[in-house]
Design a protein around this nucleic acid. Structure first.
Length: 259
DNA sequence: AAGAATGTCAACCGCGTAAGA
DNA sequence: CTCTTACGCGGTTGACATTCT
């Protein structure tokens, strides 16, 4: 037994909107607003559309303050940074970017930004070790403290105070972390010498145990950091971020944090 | 030039939840 | 308090465009 549909699918038009429909919706909303009831609105506007469809069309396409495409480097950096902290909270991320919709940001991330990061990650060095898993070189994070990152956000975001969620967990992978690259400007990964965030194959993992002191790192040189999850010098940890020489990495999955 | 593969993005689906009856 | 309704969100789909072979 499925969920009751929000409208009679046989009675409503689906698929792409015609210019006439756009006009009807735009005119109605600009004159009357949605009336606080999207379900009833299509009928009032003379549209044979589901209310949900009307709402989506208005919010994602017809709204006058919408901007499509042409994401700037600054916006890229904000999206990357916020995704690293919030995960796929697209509406939240979009709310930080003037004129962007959650759908737009989501599509942009899934079709372009993510691929760009993964492609960059593929160029990252993978160093074999006698005993697997292999050790991945993470890119250098900008030399930013969390405080500096917050300051950076303040200059770019509409609502700068965003809490970084923290949930204790014991196992991490390279994929779980992303540097807060918000201040790099041109190319968020330029400072990584062409490499990008953690590799995406998920093959490298580490058990953090009960203390961040189990984490270790070596400086891989040339703008990269070699994370050695097995042994080595201790890392610093401030609960919500992993401190490496030269930068701070935040959990990519917001459900994770350092213990 | 044509077909296949891949990329892009608008639109849909269904779940979670807030609000009101 | 419970139930119903509508909204908002994130994930997914599918049509169209573009690039590749």
């Amino acid at each position: 037994m499925g969920r009751t549909p929000c409208c009679d699918r046989a009675a409503v038009k689906r698929g792409p909107w015609s210019p006439e429909e756009d006009d009807a919706l735009r005119t109605y909303v600009q004159r009357h607003g949605s009336g606080g009831n999207w379900i009833a609105m299509p009928k009032k506007a003379g549209l044979k559309r589901c209310g949900k469809s009307c709402r989506l069309r208005w919010l994602n396409y017809l709204r006058p303050d919408i901007r499509h495409g042409g994401f700037t480097d600054e916006e890229d950096a904000v999206i990357i940074s916020l995704y690293s902290q919030l995960g796929s909270k697209w509406s939240l991320i979009a709310s930080q970017l003037e004129g962007r919709t959650d759908n737009d940001v989501k599509n942009y991330w899934n079709t372009k930004l993510k691929k760009r990061l993964l492609a960059a990650a593929a160029t990252a060095d993978v160093v074999s070790t006698p005993s697997p898993p292999p050790i991945l070189r993470l890119p250098a994070a900008p030399f930013l403290t969390p405080a500096a990152t917050t300051t950076a956000h303040a200059s770019l975001l509409r609502f700068p105070s965003l809490a970084i969620p923290t949930v204790k967990t014991e196992t991490y992978t390279c994929d779980d972390f992303l540097a807060p690259a918000v201040l790099l400007g041109d190319d968020p990964f330029a400072a990584a010498g062409g490499s990008a965030d953690a590799a995406a194959d998920g093959s490298t993992s580490a058990s953090a145990g009960s203390s961040a002191s189990n984490w270790s790192a070596d400086n891989g040189g040339e703008g990269s950091f070699l994370l050695d999850f097995c042994a080595g010098s201790d890392l610093g940890s401030a609960g919500d971020h992993l401190q490496l020489p030269g930068g701070y990495y935040y959990p990519l999955d917001p459900s994770l944090s350092l213990v």
